[in-house]
Structure formats: C-alpha cells, structure tokens
Design a binder for these strands. Structure first.
Length: 825
RNA sequence: GCCGAAGUGGCGGAAUGGUAGACGCGCCGGUCUCAAAAACCGGUGGGGGCAACCCCGUAUCGGUUCGACUCCGAUCUUCGGCACCA
C-alpha cells in the first residue's frame, strides 16, 4: 500500500530539482573538505548509522537537522568537517548469514550501498571521500594496532571472570549491554559464565572519567548518567579476623562506606560465589550451604536483582572477629551480596542499613544501635536509622558525631594495620571479547612455550577468513576454521593457535572520529598532523541512549591515546547535543508491529528532500523529539510552495512611486529582525522557531507584493537574504531559486546574512497598560518614551481612568518598551 | 524506591518575570469553479453579551511579587535513567 503523503499541488518538481543539484554539487566537489583551508576549522559529527539496509525516518530526524547546523557553521565562515560512515560490524549481519545464507560481508556492503543512496537523497554536505566503513581491513587493522598499544601499556588484559552470557546471541556481553537483566539487543534473559576473556582497563580511568572539566557543553543529564554508571563511593576496607580457622587466609576483607557503624556489626554476609565460602562452611551446615548456592545459581539475574525480593541467606556455622571490640559475629552467605562489587563481603549493621535490617529481622539477629539522633529516647528501632547522629555504644568514640567517628576510626584502623580508606567503583572493566565472526579479530597468539604473544605489528591486519561456518555454537566460528587458527608463534616459530574471539563493535566507534581526519592514511590509525588540525570534535550530535557506552568508551580511548603519547588532549567531543526520538503519528514509538513506521524514500519521492528536512526541524524542539504527521509535513511543503511563488515574482513590476515609505521601513525592519532571530536560533539548534520566523517573513512578503507597497530594491534585498537563510534548511530549492534570481553559483558558498540592530529596532511600541496587574488598555507610543511620559499617558487613558476613579494611585511601574502597571488600592 | 525532564487551545508547539497561545495543522466563512481539489483572503482558547466590552483560563493546591506559563513549596500524571553497589 502506498500512502498518499502529498495533498497539495506543487508549483515545482521537487524530484527533478533534488536530482539536478545533487548531481551538480557532486560533480563540482562542492562539499569536499580541504585540509589546507585558512578559515577556522569546525568539526561537527553526527553518530554514524548501523547499515541495517534501509534508512529509517529516525535517521532523517538525527541527520537532517545536524546537517542544517553544520551548513550554518559553514555559512558563518568555518571550514566545516561533517563526515559520515557506517558502523559496519555486528551481529545482525551474522544473523542474516545464519538465517538466509548470505555472507555478512555481502549483506553489509549491499546494505551500505542502498543506505548511501538514501543518505545522498538528503542533500547533506557529507564529503563522501571521507566515508568510513569499519568492517573493511583498512579500518579494522587499526583496531588491532590500537589493541596492541593498549596491551603493551597494560590496558588490555586477559582474565577468567564470571561474565554475562546471552544464550540467544551465543556470546558474552559487556555490563553496559545488559538492560533489566536481559540482552539489550534480543531481550533474552542473561546468564553468567566463567570464561577467559579480554578486557580493557577502563576502571583505571574511573576518576578521570568523572572529571568533566575538559568539556565545553554537554547535557547535564548525560553527565549524571555517566557519574551514576561509574558510581564512585568513598569508604574503608577492613578485615575481620578468621585466624582461629587456621586457614592460609587470616581475614575476610569487607568494604564499607559506614566505618562509623563498625560497633554495630552483628553478623557478616558473603556473596554465594565468595572464594572463602567452602572453607568457612562447618560440616553441619554443608548440605544447607550447598543447596543455597545451587539455588542462587539457578535464580535468574532478573529475580536476583529485584530490590523487593526478600533477603535470604544461610549460616555457614562459623564466626569472624570484629577487631575493634573483639566480638565474634556469625558468618552467612546471602545472594543480596554481589561478588562483583567491593570485596564480595559485607559487614552486617542492621541498625543502620536497610538491607541488613531486613536480613537481621528475618534471621533474628541482634540489632544494635550505634548512631543516635540528638533527641534519642533509647527506644528500639522500627526501621534502620541511616541519618547522621552521635556515636554511642562505640567505646572511646562515644559522643563524637558520626562524621568525626568515621575519620577517627579510619585513622585508627590504618594505624593498627586492620584496614584502610579506599574508594570503590560500580564500573567494571570493559569486556571486549565476543564469540562471533563478524568483528575485528583480536590480534593475539597462544603458544605452548611462550604463552600469550601479540601478533607483530608488521603482520597486521589479521584478516577475517571469508569462508567460515556461521552456526552459533557458543564459540567463535573462527575456532572451527583450521586455516585461521593454526599459525606460528611470532617469538619462537613453533606451531601456535590464534585467538578466535572478535572485538566488541564499540571498539570501532571509540576512535572513528580520529579516523575521519585522515580516512585513507595507511601508516597509522590517523595522520598525526591532520588529527591535530581537526580534533577534538567541536560538536557531536546523536541519541542519548549512548550515554554510558559509546560516549564513555570514546572518552576512555582518548585518555588512553593521550597517555600513549598519540594525542595531546583528553576529551574527544567538546560539545554534545542529544536529539529526541521521532514517534509515529499515533504518538507511539515507531515499530513494524504497530504499523506506524514512516518510509522516508516514499515521502522524499512525493514532497522532496527539502520538505522532509524542514518538517524534521519544524516538529518541535529537536531535543524533545515528537510525532510524525502526514498532514504536518504537507503544511511545511505548502510553505515551501508559497516561498516558490513569492520568489517567482518579478520585482521589475514594482513601481517605485507606489511604494509606501512606512511599509518599506516595516519590511526592512522585519527582514533584519528575522535575520537576527534565525542566526541566534540556528546557533542553538532551535530549528522550529527559525522556520516559524521565515514563515512570518514569507507571509509579510506575500502581503506587500499583493499591495505593491514596496520598491524593487527592497524586494530584491528581502528575497536575496531570505534565500540565504533558507539555504541550510532547504538546500535544493534555495539553490534553484537562487539561480533563477540570477545570483552566482553557489548559494552554499555564501556567508550567512548579517543584521543591523538599528534597522531591526522598532520605532513605536504598543504600551500595555495594566491596573493592578490586569491589562486594561494598549497605546501606541514612540519606542524611546521616558518613564514619566509613559506613566502620564497611561493615567490619561479613559479605560484606565474607569478603573482608577475614586481610588488612590499608590504606585506605577514602568517596564521600558513594554508596559505600565498602575497600582491602586 | 532514588535521580532527572516534562505537563499550555481540537493537535504539534511559541512565550524563561511584563500583551498567554507566535508559527503550522485542523476547523469555519469567503473568492475562483458547472462542481470538487488546489490556490488565495478572513476568522478561530472557553463562557457571557445585540454591541462596546466583561469574566474565566498555562496539571492541582498554596506562596513570593506591582505583575507568575516562567521563581519557591507541596501534590498528581506522563516520559527517561538508575536500582540490593554495602
């Protein structure tokens, strides 16, 4: 079924005009970005798309406004780099191979071809000679090269760790890729596995990633999300003595942010996976503990993470000693304690922690209050007291505030060697191994004699063999490819095996901005001089869903590259702007199942690229997203159609004698006000009000044409500047009308118009007169009127007098250029 | 549960302390037409009035102010993020 989007008769042929200018611009290389341009540089990037095969209207929503903004910067006099590429590695390509027998490379490249055509139909200023495709060896060899640099710097390491496993994708996931206990891609509930995997040591940069001082303008929301994701918390690590068990390990280490509550410890809880559990389990408790662990393993991640789940646990039958008071406390295991945070063991302080309180209630453990508010009546607690107060039942610390107690106890345990102040983070190292084919091979070799050996840089790239079996087995398809696996050790020359896992695709996007500066450079990931010239990115735009993955990884990569001496700055993106999400006409998220998906090709085919671009920007504030509307886009198309009509008028028909000097003045004033408004609004991504201002100017020009009340020179000045303002929004018809008006090619090499404050200034204003804050009259007055004159005129108004009669005027407030408020009482 | 954003006509939205509803859609009326569509012109928050005009109105309640969509406090709703992080 074809939806008839077009409800209007256009005066022009949008398809022909789109094609004409796209071909001409391409042939002339109008948007080729020179590296040797004396103008100041502006690097404006939008997040590159995954080549799924078809451009979605959401891509238009992300890309048309960002192109408009980049074009505006170009007209402001910058040498603008606004590149595009494809995030071409990843699971969908491999799934297509499995389900339909198409090779991932074939599938991806043909998708790219189609999407490239669709992207070109937008008429953006992309310099296609700088296009990046991550799945090509000329790109991914530098993933491998960078991996080797990180490995040498100790930032890439291999470790056995309990990792998140997606049973459907048959691969591990990074923590960031888990949403509500499920795989973010296929929504299958995740499980855990112990596997040897490659990690990037992002945790080493946790504190630096929390420092946002190098950023010029990022949404507060993204900074908060990164902050929460990194989850820094200051506290102390302290050991509880288990030397009586006669093990080689003499203590259980715990992390706490509340060392001030240590005298309130009445039990300990270890994570079920804690390595000391088997050794601390008493014979009598063996069965119960084993059962609990088995059950914890069976519990799904979703259930286990649910906060309202009852706290459960099992006593191990053994005790640890709280060194501060010498007390023995029972040791439990409980699945509310996570092995992945802190030390995997917590000290139970039921009086001052809500979770410990629940646990103690359930297992009848003592609850001892050690922090009390100033007016404490000594009554038993009904719930955990987590606020500040005074230390009590805490030996020599009694009477201190708990903040003082925190410091004093920390200092004392450090002196005694029982523990120390530490910082704990929520963020984990970035797991980059994937058991899949369609990704960058990790350039490592396993030799029986030499161990783990990096591939020589001269041997890069490690190419993906074209002929792998794509069945999902839980192991990388490369593992079954003998020709790939079998190699020789770069150190000793003996037969050796290649690493068969591939890299997370977020590795590709962590440094692609650097590659755009020299996309064909073959001596390194980027040409140092060109990188220096263009980086960092001045403006980045994209969806907020990348807040804790791509955006954090990119910041980490840049800092790591800096420490490797490859770059001399630490932040890749100076400014960030997040566009919202375009919804279906029913105000719901667009999805095939809802049947509310809009096909941009169809719209562009009927109304043209410019109407589509402008509608994307007219829906509302770009960061808020908004609903698609078939009739709405027709409204925008109608406007462009009217613009066409206005521009077709021949100003030679205007008779200078008939012009009305007041209308001429008003028209010039409106033109300059519009230039000012457009300039300021485009600068801040306020496209919707930019278009509204241009619509008002269009309406005004229609009117004065009908009246023939302006002279030809004024008309030409208005239409010329109008087209220049329209150029970044609707580049094709602006260029066409520009040519028809006889201006020299190309409008897209012209500067943005400048406004003159004096011309834009109003001569008269409508003075609003209020009585007690209610509007009672409006008077036309000269703009420069004095406060005294304004008040005099206001009080002289008959309408005002009917409200002030017989009452005392207490006060009159004059707001220059706006209003007078008369207060009577 | 915690954190954040938002709530304005029939609809998308504008106005960030000073004329609420710019601009667009829709709707109503008109011009053109045999007729329709398109195009063009005019009107359009609600209520009252023949009219001049008047009253009400930005989720709800309260506060600050000469003046509040805008600032402050509480509540409700919607959306987004985080969620046993010791």
């Amino acid at each position: 079924m074809t939806t008839p989007f077009r409800q209007i008769e256009l005066r022009y042929d949008p398809t022909a005009i789109d094609r004409k200018w796209q071909e001409r611009w391409a042939a002339d290389g109008l948007y080729r970005v020179p590296d040797d341009d004396p103008r100041p540089k502006w690097f404006e990037m939008t997040m590159y798309p995954y080549p799924s095969g078809d451009l979605h209207i959401g891509h238009w929503y992300a890309m048309a406004p960002s192109d408009c903004h980049a074009r505006f910067r170009r007209m402001q006099g910058y040498n603008v780099l606004h590149p595009i590429g494809f995030d071409a590695f990843g699971l969908p390509a491999e799934n297509a191979a499995i389900s339909r027998g198409i090779h991932p490379h074939t599938w991806t490249m043909s998708n790219i071809e189609n999407m490239r055509r669709q992207l070109k139909s937008m008429g953006a200023i992309y310099d296609w000679e700088r296009e990046i495709i991550c799945c090509l060896p000329e790109y991914y060899r530098w993933n491998q090269w960078l991996f080797l640099q990180l490995y040498r710097a100790g930032l890439a390491y291999r470790a056995k760790a309990p990792v998140v496993w997606c049973p459907s994708c048959q691969t591990v996931l990074a923590n960031e890729q888990v949403v509500d206990g499920s795989c973010e891609r296929c929504h299958t509930a995740i499980t855990r596995r112990d596997l040897e995997q490659w990690f990037f040591r992002i945790t080493k940069y946790a504190d630096q990633l929390l420092d946002f001082t190098g950023l010029l303008d990022w949404p507060e929301k993204i900074l908060t999300m990164q902050q929460n994701w990194i989850g820094r918390s200051e506290g102390a690590e302290i050991g509880f003595d288990i030397s009586s068990h006669r093990l080689d390990v003499k203590e259980i280490r715990t992390f706490t942010t509340r060392i001030d509550t240590i005298f309130g410890v009445t039990f300990m809880v270890l994570a079920p996976e804690h390595p000391l559990v088997p050794r601390l389990t008493a014979r009598s408790q063996h069965t119960a503990v084993a059962e609990y662990i088995a059950q914890a393993r069976r519990t799904s991640e979703i259930e286990r993470q649910s906060t309202d789940k009852e706290k459960t646990g099992v006593f191990l039958g053994s005790y640890a000693v709280n060194r501060l008071n010498g007390e023995q406390v029972p040791i439990f295991i409980g699945d509310y304690v996570l092995m992945s945070y802190g030390t995997g063991a917590v000290m139970g302080v039921p009086a001052h922690d809500v979770r410990d309180f629940d646990f103690a209630r359930k297992y009848n453990l003592p609850i001892r209050q050690v922090i009390a508010p100033a007016a404490w009546d000594g009554k038993e607690l009904a719930e955990a007291f987590v606020g500040d107060g005074f230390m009590t039942a805490s030996a020599r610390y009694d009477g201190m505030t708990n903040q003082e107690g925190k410091r004093a106890i920390a200092e004392d345990i450090e002196k005694k060697g029982w523990g120390s102040r530490t910082v704990s983070y929520r963020i984990r190292d970035w797991l980059i191994s994937r058991q899949r084919y369609w990704g960058t091979p990790i350039p490592m070799i396993y030799c029986d004699a030499c161990g783990i050996v990096p591939v020589l840089e001269s041997a890069l790239p490690v190419l993906l063999p074209p002929d792998a079996e794509f069945k999902p087995t839980g192991e990388s398809p490369l593992a079954a490819h003998q020709g790939f696996v079998n190699t020789t050790c770069p150190q000793c020359g003996a037969p050796a095996r290649r690493e068969t896992d591939t890299m997370d695709t977020f590795v590709d996007s962590s440094w692609y901005m650097f590659r755009y500066t020299s996309p064909h450079y073959d001596q390194g990931p980027f040409d140092p001089a060109l990188m220096q010239q263009w980086m960092p990115v001045d403006q980045y735009t994209g969806g907020a869903e990348h807040a804790v993955m791509h955006l954090l990884y990119s910041r980490f990569f840049t800092k790591a590259l800096r420490d490797l001496g490859l770059v001399d700055f630490g932040e890749p993106f100076l400014r960030l702007y997040n566009q919202g999400i375009i919804l279906g006409e029913d105000h719901e998220k667009m999805s095939k199942s809802r049947g509310n998906v809009v096909n941009p090709d169809l719209v562009v085919g009927q109304l043209g690229a410019d109407a589509t671009r402008c509608f994307m920007m007219f829906i509302g504030p770009w960061d808020q997203g908004g609903p698609w509307s078939d009739v709405g886009i027709n409204g925008v198309a109608r406007w462009l159609n009217r613009v066409w009509g206005v521009m077709e008028h021949d100003p030679n028909h205007l008779d200078a004698g008939a012009a009305n000097s007041q209308t001429v003045r008003a028209t010039q004033r409106l033109l300059h006000q519009t230039i000012r408004k457009c300039y300021q609004d485009l600068d801040r991504f306020k496209f919707n009000t930019t278009i509204a201002a241009l619509m008002e100017l269009t309406n005004h020009l229609s009117k004065v044409w009908a009246e023939a009340s302006v002279d030809a020179a004024t008309w030409r000045d208005c239409t010329r500047n109008f087209l220049l303002m329209l150029a970044p929004l609707a580049p094709h018809i602006a260029e066409e009308m520009w040519e028809r008006a006889g201006h020299p090619y190309s409008i897209h090499q012209q500067p943005f118009p400048k406004w003159d404050e004096e011309t834009a200034a109003e001569d008269t204003i409508t003075l609003v007169v209020q009585v007690n804050g209610k509007v009672r009259d409006r008077i036309e007055v000269p703009a420069g009127i004095s406060s005294g004159q304004a008040q005099e005129l206001a009080l002289a108004s008959l309408k005002v007098q009917s409200y002030t009669q017989g009452k005392a005027v207490r006060q009159a407030v004059y707001v220059p250029g706006k209003l007078v408020n008369v207060v009577v009482g």
